[in-house]
Design a protein around this nucleic acid. Structure first.
Length: 559
DNA sequence: AAAAAAC
């Protein structure tokens, strides 16, 4: 009976019900909203294409036009316009599945872009060995950010690169670094000076690990020392004569900072400093650490570059101050998901209704692996647990509260395709490239546009299609319109009534943030529990699990 | 908004 009630509350998209709840947020406008919505109920049922064109007229195009005008306003700066469409026409090879984006490059003396990787050898003497490694790894033609960004970095210029998720930003900075490195520091003919020459900083261990892997693939046949910085690798570099022979370090910020402070690392010889996921690296939590790192890079010719799919104005300001005579490259529209990702918003009345909705979803055919995002670590753990208890196969969990080994194991199961359902926190939201992910579910509503764009950007990578579903509850209403606009901007359709919601800024958002979200409410503790618990402990680690459970109980009793 | 992540 209980289960039936839960199911009947969750399930299908229920406009009517939500509409009533809108009153809660804007009593003054409630009649207006209701009147308009009910007279246009049919709009929501139009084919999605029609819906899109309708709203694109009002919002999307205006904004595009505004963007373009802004770009033309630069005074002393030169603007380059180009389009990947043209490049595709030139070449005639239509095996490029990548979406076609407008590219703008703004700054002084912008180097010309390249249409093919081979042009890099002619123009910049990029070693052919490097290009071989490219094609061996399946890189045939440069993406937008690669064709513009690589020449800029090869000309030793500073760069702020904004390009959508899954469009090859990593290669855009790795290739120029490797082209510029020359002989390994350890070799006799090196004129590299002493100390590491390139540093790449990323916000999570998993991402740093992935970048390091890419780095190794590209460096095949060369003897550079490329270090994924961790506690153990850092300790092997305690000996200065050893660390002076390192060429490239990939690291998370705090790891670098603690080595700097311990006097176990010098960055005075760094010629290339890359901030991946730049807006994250420049947010208030990471900024002090990043500043310490940049301050330690004292070489007069240090080249700095920042990369992200999103770069809010304040982060861009900080970035531009950091950079010297920078060039700003924007591929597509900033802070916007790929149109390849078909996005939808699903109403679930409240937190308790989410699990039944998800179970219903997972009971139908879906494309594994599915990546599910929750707002907190305990919620990720307990949701994974619930799915296991409900006999969903191959459930995995990954958050930063897990041990290093547990995290690594989870990632490798994911890479091997053994995970069908991966429940995670923001730790997985940025940069991670699991090529198979075709569906993302935002179980908990994202807390920013940036978070939304990066989360759903785990699918639709390298030209593949993807699907993203976002659950929203009554509590999420104040932020719904903001995210709905992002869907519109990227070509997904949104029901009429959502767009008619009052402006987010006018809503009472303060009181909304106070709702405490604890663990996923259990709906089905039944038979086979012991087996399920064993399996769960294998997935999440029993020790950690116990700690989490105790912590959560404390939190509950507080209430 | 606000939690997450970084050692």
């Amino acid at each position: 009976m209980e289960a039936f009630q839960l199911l009947s509350r969750g399930g299908a998209f229920d406009k009517q019900r939500f509409k009533n709840d809108v009153y809660l947020f804007s009593p003054a406008k409630s009649k207006h909203v209701e009147g308009k919505s009910s007279s246009k109920v049919d709009d929501g049922e139009l084919p999605s294409e029609l819906d899109f064109f309708k709203y694109a007229k009002g919002g999307t195009n205006k904004r595009k036009a505004a963007n373009q005008n802004l770009q033309h306003e630069g005074k002393k700066q030169k603007t380059n316009h180009a389009s990947e469409d043209e490049q595709d026409d030139d070449n005639g090879t239509s095996n490029s599945p990548l979406p076609k984006h407008r590219v703008t490059a703004k700054g002084s003396r912008v180097p010309e872009h390249v249409d093919v990787f081979e042009a890099l050898t002619d123009r910049y003497q990029v070693p052919s060995r490097l290009l071989e490694n490219l094609s061996n790894n399946g890189y045939n033609r440069p993406t937008g950010i690669q064709s513009y960004g690589i020449p800029i970095l090869l000309e030793s210029r500073d760069l702020a690169a904004i390009s959508p998720t899954g469009t090859g930003k990593t290669l855009s900075y790795l290739l120029p670094i490797m082209a510029a490195l020359g002989a390994p520091a350890a070799s006799a003919k090196s004129d590299a000076g002493s100390g590491v020459r390139a540093v790449i900083v990323a916000p999570t261990r998993e991402l740093a690990h992935q970048i390091h892997n890419e780095c190794l693939k590209l460096a095949v046949g060369r003897k550079w020392r490329i270090i994924l910085f961790s506690k153990s690798t850092a300790s092997t570099l305690a000996d200065k004569s050893v660390r002076d022979k390192v060429d490239i370090i990939v690291s998370t910020p705090l790891r670098l900072v603690s080595s700097l402070q311990a006097g176990n690392l010098e960055l005075h010889n760094v010629r290339h400093l890359i901030l991946d996921e730049a807006d994250r690296m420049l947010d208030s939590e990471f900024l002090p650490q990043v500043q310490e790192i940049t301050a330690a890079c004292t070489h007069e010719n240090v080249q700095k570059a920042v990369f992200s799919a999103t770069l809010p104005a304040n982060a861009e300001k900080i970035a531009m101050k950091m950079l010297r005579d920078p060039i700003r490259v924007v591929v597509g529209l900033k802070d916007t998901p790929l149109p390849l990702i078909s996005q939808s918003l699903t109403y679930v009345a409240d937190d308790q209704s989410k699990l039944p909705s998800l179970l219903t979803y997972l009971a139908q055919p879906y494309n594994p692996p599915v990546l599910i995002f929750t707002s907190t670590q305990p919620r990720a753990s307990s949701l994974a647990e619930e799915l296991v208890l409900n006999a969903i196969p191959n459930v995995d969990c990954l958050h930063a509260g897990m041990s290093k080994k547990e995290r690594e194991d989870a990632v490798s199961r994911m890479r091997r395709g053994e995970s069908w359902v991966m429940v995670s926190t923001e730790v997985m939201a940025r940069g991670m490239d699991f090529k198979g992910v075709r569906e993302v579910i935002n179980y908990d509503f994202p807390t920013s546009v940036q978070s939304y764009v990066h989360r759903i950007g785990r699918t639709g990578r390298a030209g593949r299609e993807g699907k993203a579903v976002t659950y929203f509850t009554d509590e999420d209403a104040p932020f719904l319109k903001t995210i709905a606009n992002v869907l519109l901007q990227s070509g997904s359709s949104v029901p009429d009534w959502i767009l008619k919601l009052p402006k987010p800024s006018k809503m009472k958002r303060r009181q909304m943030g106070k709702v405490k979200r604890l663990e996923i409410v259990n709906s089905a503790r039944k038979i086979g529990r012991n087996d399920a618990v064993k399996k769960r402990d294998m997935i999440m680690g029993s020790k950690r699990r116990k700690q989490k459970a105790e912590g959560a109980q404390d939190a509950t009793s507080d209430d």
